[in-house]
Amino acid sequence: MKEILLKTDSLSKSFSSGGALQHVLRNIDLTLYRGDFTVIMGASGAGKSTLLYALSGMDTPTLGTITFEDEDISDLSQDGLAVFRRRHCGFVFQQIYLIDGMSIMDNVLAAGMLVNKDKKALIRRAEELFEAVGISQETQQKFPTQISGGEAQRVGIVRALMNSPEILFADEPTGALNSKTGLNVLDTLTRFNEQGQSVVMVTHDMRSARRGNRILYLKDGVILGECDLGRYVHGDRKRHEELSAFLAEMGW
């Protein structure tokens, strides 16, 4: 029996455009489980990122509720959501968003210091994570503009994992990387997931989606279908075949 981590009830999100409402998410009922690698797929404009940001407390829903470990987060204030994010969520963005004026180590510590006051413990944790993603000590002292896109994204993952979040949200983490570097980043995410880290990733790339054990397909703000790949180990051809069949069925 899987442990429920996050649940939505009739989650809707609308934006107003010149007085008219544009419904980006429509009555989504979704449950995320601890330890899952959930992938949200869909065409451009389907509402993938909007769903991800609503689930992670980056954005507030127009209607419906989001419950995280029995706590309703949909009515939290901006500050309340900030505290929720720092304690329970990690974020990996397509554009990475490291702070230019800070060294790589400082970028990571700036996230860690929000939760932990023990600087030595934070540095130890950062160094462990840096080692796990293959970022050298020399690179840790560099600035974001001095490292490659792949390195930056791995730093982004370290930053996201600094506070040991319950869920790691990744929005097109390989979208701005070349295939080799992207593969490296996916390997890193897969490895952390295998160690128990829950991951929710948005992608429109099938190769990335194969890393998930649960695939959700979103269309016009509605979850159109779901595919369970957890039965197959990574690298199994059947995983690819089943995903292809699912996506074909969804009209991908």
Binding site: M58, Q78, D79, A82, V83, R85, R86, R87, C89, F91, F93, Q95, Y97, L98, I99, D100, A110, A111, L114, V115, R159, A160, N163
Partner: peptide, 15 residues
Amino acid sequence: MKNLGALKAIGYKSG
């Protein structure tokens, strides 16, 4: 703006 967004995303309050 993006840096501020990133800081807020990782849990920094406006204050």
